[in-house]
Write a protein that binds this DNA or RNA. Structure first.
Lengths: 201, 201
DNA sequence: TATAGTATCAGACTACAGTCTAGTTTTTTG
DNA sequence: CAAAAAACTAGACTGTAGTCTGATACTATA
């Protein structure tokens, strides 16, 4: 055989086809208005293929959520060395929330928050939370090193609080039927929390 | 007719019967393991009756959640006049979280959080949140009156933050597969938030 | 190239929430 | 009290996510 690269499996093509059609349909009609049957019909595949490549209907939607991880890191690495870690945290949160709102959208976020609560196992959400967790911990470690954090609080405590404040803002925003932005929910919240965390001088 | 009271409608009996059986089954096997068919079979009623009296499967489960409202008020009214409103808030949160964990349980809370995110309309959750909202606002108004709150923050801001911190703690706890208590999630969080909210003297 | 093993695929089938319709019982009204 | 209206009930039916089974295509190996 001349071609050295293993011939791509049929499956990869099918998977891509399903994904493309599904994402288009979700964008057009919204997650709940699209059925798996629609997807396999429009992509000329079958249920068998669908569930060969994806664990569930929401799983396929969650694929988009993998982009978040990259974004986390990107933001993290963009900070100048000497920036105040508390400020880094604050900016990090705002960029994050903005990204989730603008790039992901409320519909996706709601599906993700639902799926995470329902599934016993792995979801991209929990994975990426782990990555988010790592970054906030790093930033917090810096802050502790510079003695900026109330010494009554452990790293775990603080890091958990940050996570919770993100979840709280997002969940609350997801409940809302208005156009009020996610950032407007999270900004004062995170700011106040960071103030509470900081060493009182 | 001698009896002055209107004869109770058949329906009331059926409703009670369904409710009793359903709650028992939920307690025995957990919400997701019980089907509506199970419930109507065990209660010797029918789908028609079930949906005549309840809007959905989760709706029936949510009935239990109405107790929360009473508890909110009870706690609120139990505070002595002259207590520091910030302390009231702190105690209120802890009692609330404890109640949700012990009396409602994680399973119910997860269903509620899911249902709220999915439904476009009314749920007991949103209703009772409104009531929770009122109480936290009252407590915050007291605090503002006594000039205990950072004057940069509006009543709305602060009240929203409190709500979000509850939601964040509960959601995060719901995600957890460990036995870690809800109170252990919310306590440091609320404490820190209240510190951030308070006027720095 | 024949054979065995594995990945992929089609679509019938299952499980279950929720809807619909037709019939029954109870209440109201004239 | 009879007729009409309303409340209630049974269970067949629908919609849809997800499972299962048995083909089919591809790959590796001899």
């Amino acid at each position: 055989m001349i071609e050295p690269v293993k011939k791509q499996r049929r499956g990869e093509e099918t998977k891509k086809k399903i994904l493309a059609v599904a994402l288009r349909l979700f964008a057009e009609k919204g997650f709940n208005k699209v059925t798996v049957d629609d997807i396999v019909k429009k992509s000329a595949t079958s249920k068998g293929s669908f569930y060969q490549h994806f664990r569930s209907k929401s799983d396929i939607f969650l694929v988009r959520f993998t982009e978040v991880d990259n974004y986390y890191l990107e933001v993290y690495e963009s900070f100048p060395e000497n920036m105040d870690p508390i400020e880094k945290l604050s900016i990090f949160s705002q960029k994050l929330m903005n990204f989730l709102e603008v790039e992901m959208g409320k519909d996706l976020m709601k599906v993700i928050y639902n799926a995470a609560l329902e599934s016993k196992e792995h979801t991209y959400f929990l994975d990426s939370n782990r990555s988010l967790f790592k970054i906030t911990r790093k930033l917090l470690e810096e802050a502790i090193e510079e003695d900026k954090i109330d010494s009554e609080l452990s790293l775990d405590d603080v890091s958990t609080m940050i996570t919770q404040s993100f979840m709280g803002s997002i969940y609350h925003w997801g409940l809302q039927n208005t156009d009020r932005s996610l950032e407007s929910f999270s900004k004062p919240f995170v700011k106040t929390l960071l103030k509470g965390i900081s060493k009182t001088t």
